[in-house]
């Protein structure tokens, strides 16, 4: 336990001592604010689907969830780079001499990334709601903003773990980013376009769509379970690769 705490301390120091994290977090907040503003204006123009409305009003937190489709890319970049920069800069060899237990190193990295994406995710959710609420005017409501922001933080924490695990399994930023974008951004809409039950079901099992069900859908726990399963699978794959391959 003391060793895990030490490994987490080292990962914490590593995360905050390069500029990547600051740029990624700044981008995330800018994307969130801009996206929330845009969606709030859409709502005002009557361009949002009926599913966004609750009792005839648009919850500001739901606008933050819509804007998250942009902002999550910056969170993904942050989480993914925390792991893959180890391979692209060669620091993985340093990290593994400091913490030779592959599983512990990966766990420490997941803990740090998840903590950071959770807290900043909650902040981003609140920021998005804060931007959206005045723009929604009398069409909007602040009800449930805190719950929605906490859920955004939780989703981003799990997504961060998924990105770290995948980064360890694929060992490089380019491939990892491509796979993440395919899983979360590209493939789901392609599956959903024909609107065939089987393809829709497959899309529902993808991490981004499942995350959306968690944030906005009627069966949030199933959505959370699916994203978590993806994250656990990625971490297990990452650990297996770290253990098997020479550093």
């Amino acid at each position: 336990m003391t060793r895990l705490r030490a490994a987490i301390g080292a990962e914490w120091t590593k995360l905050w001592t390069t500029r990547t994290v600051w740029w990624a977090l700044l981008s995330a907040l800018v994307l969130m604010a801009a996206g929330a503003g845009q969606y709030a204006l859409y709502a005002g123009n009557g361009d949002l689907p009926a599913s966004v409305f609750r009792d005839g009003l648009v919850p500001a937190g739901s606008i933050a969830v819509l804007a998250l489709s942009f902002a999550q890319l910056a969170f993904l970049a942050l989480a993914m780079l925390a792991m893959t920069s180890e391979f692209s800069t060669g620091t993985i060899r340093s990290s593994l001499t400091w913490v030779p237990a592959r599983g512990r190193l990966l766990l420490a990295k997941c803990a740090v990334v998840a903590a950071v994406t959770f807290v900043t995710g909650v902040v981003a959710g609140l920021l998005g709601s804060l931007v959206a609420r005045p723009l929604l005017d009398d069409l909007g409501t602040s009800a449930g903003v805190l719950t929605q922001s906490l859920k955004i933080g939780l989703y981003l924490a799990v997504l961060g773990i998924l990105a770290v695990g995948l980064g360890a399994a694929l060992r490089g930023p380019v491939l990892t980013l491509v796979v993440l974008l395919l899983l979360i951004v590209v493939v789901p809409p392609l599956l959903q376009v024909p609107d065939i039950a089987v393809l829709n079901a497959v899309a529902d099992a993808m991490p981004g769509v499942a995350g959306n069900h968690f944030l906005e859908g009627d069966s949030p726990l199933v959505g959370l379970a699916i994203v978590s399963a993806w994250a656990i699978a990625a971490v297990l794959a990452g650990r297996a690769v770290l253990q098997r391959r020479d550093a």
Binding site: E11, T20, S85
Partner: peptide
């Protein structure tokens, strides 16, 4: 392990964006 074996392998294994002191700080914490 770092208290039993100290190693210099390829000197490149430092993140170029991190200061030397921060590199050692993370190492010490680990």
């Amino acid at each position: 392990p770092l208290r039993h074996v100290g190693a210099l392998l390829e000197a490149g294994a430092v993140h170029p964006g991190r200061t030397g002191r921060n590199h050692l700080l993370a190492m010490a914490r680990s």
